[in-house]
Nucleic acid binder design. Structure first.
Lengths: 207, 207
DNA sequence: TAGATTGTTAATCGATTAACAATC
DNA sequence: TAGATTGTTAATCGATTAACAATC
């Protein structure tokens, strides 16, 4: 029987990585749950509890070796591998993602990009040449790609998601503000500036 | 004494808006907590519970009037207002945000954008003319802007955040994968594709 | 040794779910 | 009226926090 790790703990590991990256860039070698909590605005107990689901990474009395914990968390998240990602939509946003250095540097490489606009197909952005949407299925299956990013206008998002799922994609990062429905074995994460802004303006009084 | 509404309930209202938008675009006039739950992959009880923090929006036996609930949620989130937003960083990502139709259409208007690159300053992207970073403080204060988006490269993010806070910004949407520290009365939301991808690859087996 | 900090247990807190009276 | 669905209460579940023995 597998120990059941709460998804909410998994979801915080990338934030811990972000804080560790900060410490590493400052040349700091050792940290503590207390210090990490201060950086992240959470609690030391929560960080220790979260980490305890995955193993023991620290030393009593001393704390955590920054580089070691970084490596371990990347391993746990499978972020120590290089992942191939497909991008659908080569508009302004797709263009920005193709130029995003951070993604490739952190192991998520966009290796194929698609658009239905004949003007764009065949052009090169960053390291990839934009292909016609019709090439999506073959490309995904040949390369065995499981990660996709949707950066198409809202009206096309559902259709594209369906095509990606059909082609075998297992995880979709969706930049369109559209609720997707996918099979149980496919994950979707949404990212939408308006959702974040709405959340924050709730707390801002009208003037 | 103010009733205390959980932030987690607030954070789901934008998702409910997203689902309502979908129903509205299909011309559907009435919905139910059950149907919304199916769209969002949550539970009917949770949706009713969440909404109950803010008022009574439905009719027993019937459900919710889509347009009415949409209006009410937008009002609660202050998303029925038009908000002015400043953007810092006019690179590929800033460019994409300036061209993003959805933001303006949903009431979040980028009214000023800044960059430190002299090549960019003075050029027009979408409806705004890029200004030098040095103009940030004045522009924010003169217009009384409280919302900002950071889309600068990681090394500059902290400095920019500091400048925004100094100028009076109260809510920051941070596109750089950098943990910011800000005063208690300033909100920060992070958005970073790698964080989402790492969360998902945890569940994908290596092959 | 004294001080610090981990990993873990138990207590607390809060969120989710189930159930149902009210009522359209 | 019968069926459906809300809003709310109470029960359950799970996450966070506090506390501390272990130990570096």
């Amino acid at each position: 029987m597998t120990r059941d790790i709460p998804d909410i703990a998994v979801s915080r590991l990338p934030l811990y990585l972000r804080a560790l990256g900060h410490l590493e860039s400052n040349g700091q070698q050792i940290t503590s749950s207390k210090e990490l909590a201060a950086i992240l605005g959470s609690s030391a107990a929560q960080i220790r509890k979260d980490l305890s689901h995955f193993g023991e990474f620290g030393k009593q009395g001393t704390g955590y070796h920054v580089a070691h914990l970084n490596r371990q968390l990347r391993r746990i998240l499978h972020a120590d591998l290089v992942w191939d990602v497909v991008l659908v939509g080569a508009g302004h946003l797709g263009n920005a993602l193709l130029h995003n250095q951070g993604m490739a540097r952190r192991g998520y490489r966009i290796v194929a990009a698609f658009d239905h606009d004949p003007e764009k197909v065949g052009t090169r952005i960053g390291n990839v040449i934009i292909q016609n949407n019709q090439r999506m299925r073959d490309e995904i299956q040949q390369r065995g790609i499981r990660l996709a990013i949707i950066a198409v206008p809202p009206p096309s998002a559902r259709r594209v998601a369906h095509q990606l799922v059909e082609a075998g994609v297992k995880a979709i990062l969706n930049y369109s503000p559209i609720a997707l429905s996918v099979p149980d074995d496919v994950m979707v994460q949404y990212t939408d500036p308006v959702t974040h802004l709405q959340h924050m303006t709730y707390y801002l009084q009208d003037r």
